[in-house]
């Protein structure tokens, strides 16, 4: 089977499962959250797996998307779907504002992006801005609440995200990004526009988080700044990605399925035990299996998408 077709098959299977499973096990919120993390993990993957920038503050784009969508509904009276797009646009605008962060290397970038997400959070939640963002009092979108429609839109956003990663796995652009990650000087020598490619990957990953945040806001419809700017959202997306294996399509899918499942078994009532487990997982992965679970298969000669 040609490799492009096997990728498309993965995409179709994942989306079909997301559509069918809620009919078999009636817990739509669970599957919605699963899709949120599938998409966010792939967003982290696009940035970290393909360019080597680790965005600790990825949740900043998610929260910005949620607020962009909500304000588009409340202030501009847009219907929900265009409002979700507005959320994506808001996240891309934030990405453009923060693009200079890409000048920083490794650890500096990771920490600066965390600082940026916290700064956005404290601005949005600030009591002085109650007139604009409703400050710490949160948002209510009860008027447009429609869980089954927002579920379908989420399936669409997830499909878009998986297609984007598939494209990067199989295209010249994905190879270019990985070349930049591994050796920016040589890539620049080979005629690659390093800055443009990095910024594009950064904005794509911001767009994904913004769209996901927008649909998330629509789905839960009542939320506080702390809900959508919760650092543990970035942290879980990063851990899922690292666990599955970065730079692949299937790695993050695997990581989310296994760890999000684990989270739902033990994490919801006793989050500290789950936090302990994934903290230990990261430490062990970094020390003994830096390539994630996918590298176990690669080592046996199986090509992971």
């Amino acid at each position: 089977m040609p490799r492009v077709w096997s990728g498309a098959a993965v995409l179709v299977v994942v989306l079909a499962l997301c559509l069918v499973l809620p009919q078999l096990y009636a817990n739509q919120f669970l599957f919605f959250d699963l899709m949120v993390y599938l998409a966010l993990a792939q967003g982290v993957n696009i940035l970290y797996g393909f360019t080597g920038y680790l965005p600790f503050g990825y949740v900043g784009f998610f929260g910005t998307g949620a607020y962009g969508m909500s304000l588009a509904v409340l202030k501009l009276h847009l219907p929900p779907v265009p409002a979700v797009l507005a959320g994506g646009v808001a996240a891309v605008v934030l990405g453009l504002v923060l693009a200079p962060l890409l000048r920083l290397s490794g650890a500096y970038f990771a920490i600066a992006s965390l600082a940026a997400s916290q700064a956005v959070y404290y601005v949005v939640a600030n009591p002085s801005l109650t007139g604009v963002t409703r400050g710490p009092y949160g948002i209510s979108l009860a008027r447009v609440y429609h869980p089954s429609q927002s579920y379908l839109v989420m399936v669409g956003v997830l499909g878009l995200t998986l297609a984007a990663v598939l494209y990067l796995r199989r295209s010249r652009r994905g190879m270019v990004l990985q070349a930049i990650r591994d050796d920016p000087q040589s890539a620049a020598m080979a005629g690659v526009n390093v800055v443009r490619e990095r910024v594009l990957a950064w904005l794509a990953s911001a767009l994904i988080a913004g769209l996901v945040g927008g649909v998330f806001a629509w789905q839960i419809s009542v939320f506080y700044p702390a809900t959508v700017f919760d650092l543990s959202t970035s942290i879980m997306a990063i851990v899922f990605t690292l666990f599955g294996g970065t730079g692949t399509l299937l790695g993050p899918v695997l990581g989310v399925t296994v760890l999000f499942g684990l989270y739902n078994v033990i994490g919801v009532s006793e989050p500290q035990y789950f936090q302990l487990i994934y903290g230990a997982l990261i430490v062990l992965l970094v020390l003994f299996l830096p390539g994630g679970a996918a590298s176990l298969l690669k080592r046996r000669g199986i090509d992971v998408l």
Binding site: G52, G106, A110, Q275, L276, G279, I282, V283
Partner: peptide, 22 residues
């Protein structure tokens, strides 16, 4: 490891999560 600066950041991040959970 291949990229000590980045890998150690992720490592200490895991340590931080463990300490906080404990």
């Amino acid at each position: 490891s291949t990229d000590p600066e980045m890998i150690s950041l992720v490592f200490f991040f895991g340590v931080a999560e463990m300490i906080q959970a404990l």
